[in-house]
Design a protein around this nucleic acid. Sequence first.
DNA 1: TAGGCCATCTGGTCCT
DNA 2: AGGACCAGATGGCCTA
Length: 161
Amino acid sequence: MSTGSFGSDAEGCGKRHRRIATALGRSTRKGTCYNRCSSQHLEDIREEHRAPKAHAHKDSRQTQRNAANARERARMRVLSRAFFRLKTSLPWVPADTKLSKLDTLRLASSYICHLRQLLQEERLDSFPHPVALQTWPFMMSGRSEDSLEVSSSGRLCGATA
DNA sequence: TAGGCCATCTGGTCCT
DNA sequence: AGGACCAGATGGCCTA
């Protein structure tokens, strides 16, 4: 998972903007609105230092907002971990394979379809089907983890999206 | 360099 | 009221 590098994102707005945000204990990571060059927003930040009462109100609001942000980050981490587990549970995908979340969903979906198909064939034929193991996605000989080198497009085996 | 992907922030909405 | 969930916006990284 690429988390990217943080810290240079506020350069576009100038170091002064970043200093203000940093002084207020705010994140200057990517995506934050503090990176935007809005003079109105800069004024809002200054306002917090001007009026103590309004500042206290905004401060508590900001505290709540920061807490909500942290919860949202945690939630998205859980989601990313779930995607990772889903990816690693796909038998023909090596753990170090670069797979987007969309690809993961597509592959998982097609894998489920494949398993369902196997089950149906199993019902028709009570004994194990010798051909099934030689068809997608089990066509890789041996099925050892390091021998599952298949292109992403090949793995899709038909559009699922 | 454009486009894809991702992490993060944010405000709105719904639920408990 | 507070938390969970969601979608939009934003900017960084990577690759063709």
